[in-house]
């Protein structure tokens, strides 16, 4: 399990490096490695852009069937998201982005969970299984 504190642009790069190493260790295909690193990049940047600071926690998971996966939890105490449905709509952005960060990360991973309360922060949990 590894943890990355996100409070600068360089920390987004660090989060990607941690994700790449973890994906490599679990034997993900090159395409899935790229998907994982891209999703992590989007979610780490969301923290930096909207909440200024937060953290990413990465850990390996194992199903009863023996299938392994990677879980990333992104947490911040930022402003939170008012309308979760809207935030997940492709193309919608409250900031300067393309509005594809959250929806894109969701599409790239196998599991996606978003919890947020206005004024209290946001938690995003994503998982990719090696299948």
């Amino acid at each position: 399990m590894s943890r990355v504190e996100i409070c600068s642009e360089q920390d987004i790069v660090l989060a990607r490096q941690v994700a790449r190493q973890a994906a490599l260790n679990l034997g993900f295909s090159l395409v899935d490695q790229t998907r994982i690193i891209t999703a992590v990049s989007e979610l780490a940047r969301n923290i930096y852009t909207y909440a200024t600071s937060g953290s990413m926690q990465a850990q390996e998971l194992k199903k009863a069937t023996g299938i392994v996966g990677l879980e990333f939890v992104f947490e911040d105490q930022g402003p939170g998201i008012d309308d979760l449905q809207l935030a997940l709509t492709a193309g919608y952005s409250s900031g300067q982005g393309l509005g594809l960060g959250l929806s894109g990360a969701k599409r790239l991973m196998d599991e996606f969970e978003l919890q947020s309360k206005l004024g209290q922060g946001t938690l995003v949990r994503v998982v990719k299984w090696t299948k």
Binding site: V31, R35, T38, L100, S103, G104, R107, L108
Partner: peptide, 13 residues
């Protein structure tokens, strides 16, 4: 590269 192309299409980029 193919991995980037696949990922971008997946994301709708």
């Amino acid at each position: 590269n193919p991995m980037i192309a696949l990922t971008m299409v997946d994301m709708g980029l």
